Amino acid sequence: MPRFAANLTMLFTELPFMQRFEAAAKAGFKAVEYLFPYAFDKKELTAALRANGLQQVLHNLPAGNWEGGERGIACHPDRIGEFREGVGMAIDYASALGCPKLNCLLGKLPQGVSADEARKTAVENLRFAARELQGAGIMLLVEPVNYFDIPGFFLTRTDQALAILDEVGSTNLLLQYDIYHAQRMEGELAATLTKNMARIGHIQLADNPGRGEPGTGEINYPWLFKHIDAAGYTGWIGCEYKPRGETVEGLGWRTALPR
């Protein structure tokens, strides 16, 4: 049976962020993830986790000006110094929160930068981040994102991500496999998961179309969860979807799963 982590950036958004920890725990979640912790005090976040018996399983490296539309800077040749400073900040937060994995969003291809130059920059930055995180006992992840939701995103497919992992050549870098993004870009979910399970460090979910909760779209999630179990995945699956209504009302998909 999969273990599900509540993505607090997407779920319980009817509540202020710091109240979402308690809501997640009351809904039966044992773990949480979210995009970024950096706007909050580490002690406040740690206290919320402990008070609600929750484990922090993932957050992202700093990703540039998110509110301004940036979606990562790891492939930006002119932002290497900023990226490396962000790695240090991320390690500081993850260490305080007991978070074992950090995800790197490579970002959109910068205007005027060739794909080859962006790839070279991303590889160098990932090598640096993987080495720094390994020293702190934290696993680095990299995530393909579909270009329908984020036009211009540099990393969009599983095979592209795995080729970058090969080039980086670090045992401390794995794939973050988002089922929703993968369905939009390539399909073949079961085959891809089975083939690459040893290189997948984290899984996230949402249904398609609409990025809603499981059961609202075309993906046969009850079957896929069984397949993921059979393929040997024992990690958390982050629930990074947009509830159709209030979050608790849309959790029937989870309670209906066979135990």
Rank of each mutant, 00 (worst) to 15 (best):
L102P: 03
E240G: 02
M139L: 15
P144M: 13
Q160M: 03
L49P: 12
E246D: 14
G69F: 01
R79L: 10
L58D: 11
F83E: 10
L257E: 02
W253L: 00
V123I: 15
L165K: 02
D78Q: 14
L97G: 08
E246V: 03
P151W: 09
Y147F: 04
E33R: 10
L35Y: 15
T255Y: 01
Y34Q: 06
G201W: 08
Y147R: 12
S95D: 13
D229A: 14
E124T: 04
T216A: 13
L11T: 03
R79T: 00
L140K: 04
T121M: 11
F21G: 13
E249N: 11
N60V: 04
A130S: 15
M197T: 08
G64Q: 08
L162H: 07
I91H: 08
H202E: 05
E124L: 13
R254A: 12
K108R: 14
A51K: 14
L165V: 07
V32K: 01
V57F: 09
L257H: 00
P209G: 11
I203C: 01
F128Y: 15
A24S: 12
A51S: 15
K26W: 09
T247P: 00
A136W: 03
R259W: 10
L106A: 15
G169W: 00
F154R: 05
L224V: 04
V168M: 08
A115F: 08
K30Y: 09
S95I: 03
T234V: 14
V142G: 05
M1A: 13
K101Q: 14
S114C: 12
Q204T: 11
T158S: 09
I164D: 06
D116N: 01
M197V: 13
E117D: 15
D166E: 05
E132W: 01
P214Q: 05
D166Y: 04
P144E: 06
